[in-house]
C-alpha cells in the first residue's frame, strides 16, 4: 500500500485520524509520518505487536556499519538471541542483551526516545559506582522536594533519613 501523503513510498505507519465523528485510517511512509510529527511507536497502542520500531530495526544493519562491525553478529551469550531475532521480534531476550548489543541499542534508543541516557530513579546494586551513588542522591533529593510540595510527609521523612544515611557513609 502506498503512502497517503506522498503516494510514492510504501506505507509503514498507520495512524487513526478523526474528523468530526468519522474515524479514518491514514497510511504513511516513514518519512511522511516523521514530517507529521508522528514518532516511531505510531499514534495508537502502547506496544503494538508489530511496531514501526521494526522499521528502525530493519535499518540498523544498513545505517550503522560501525555498530554491526562491533562484533554483535554473535548471539547473546546468556539468552542466545541473535541480532536478526531481535530485528524480527522487536524484543530483546534478556538484560545481558543490552550489554551484548550495546552499540546498536544506543543508536536505536536515541532514535526512539531522543536520548540514550537514563535520568530517572537510580537502582543501586553490586556493580554501582560512585556516579551511580551520586545519581541516586540527586534523585532522592528531587523526590524529597516533591514529597514536601505534595505534603506527603511520611515519604519525605523516610527520604530525609535515607539521604542522611548515604551522606554519612560518603
Amino acid at each position: 500500500m502506498l503512502c497517503d501523503d506522498c503516494g510514492k513510498e510504501d506505507a509503514e505507519v498507520h495512524v487513526t485520524s478523526i474528523e468530526g465523528e468519522v474515524m479514518s485510517m491514514v497510511q504513511l511512509c516513514a518519512s511522511c509520518a516523521a514530517e507529521r510529527g508522528l514518532a516511531a511507536e505510531s499514534a495508537i497502542g502502547e506496544a503494538p505487536s508489530k511496531p514501526p520500531l521494526l522499521d528502525f530495526l530493519g535499518q540498523l544493519g544498513s545505517t550503522s556499519p560501525a555498530a554491526s562491525a562491533a562484533g554483535a553478529s554473535e548471539p547473546c551469550p546468556f539468552c542466545g538471541i541473535t541480532a536478526s531475532d531481535f530485528r524480527s521480534a522487536g524484543r530483546v531476550g534478556c538484560s545481558q542483551c543490552y550489554v551484548h548489543f550495546e552499540s546498536q541499542l544506543s543508536g536505536l534508543l536515541r532514535r526512539i526516545h531522543g536520548s540514550a541516557h537514563h535520568s530517572g530513579k537510580v537502582y543501586i546494586n553490586e556493580t554501582s559506582d560512585i556516579s551511580d551513588r551520586l545519581g541516586q542522591l540527586s534523585s532522592m533529593r528531587r523526590r524529597l522536594k516533591r514529597a514536601i510540595e505534595t505534603e506527603d510527609f511520611e515519604t519525605a521523612a523516610k527520604l530525609r533519613d535515607q539521604i542522611h544515611e548515604i551522606e554519612v557513609q560518603a
Binding site: 520500531l53 538484560s95 526512539i112 540514550a116 537514563h118
Partner: peptide, 15 residues
C-alpha cells in the same frame, strides 16, 4: 544498566 536505566524486553520501555 548504568546508562540505559531499568531494562525491559522492548526497547520502547527502557529507562
Amino acid at each position: 544498566h548504568h546508562q540505559f536505566g531499568f531494562l525491559t524486553a522492548c526497547p520502547t520501555n527502557v529507562g
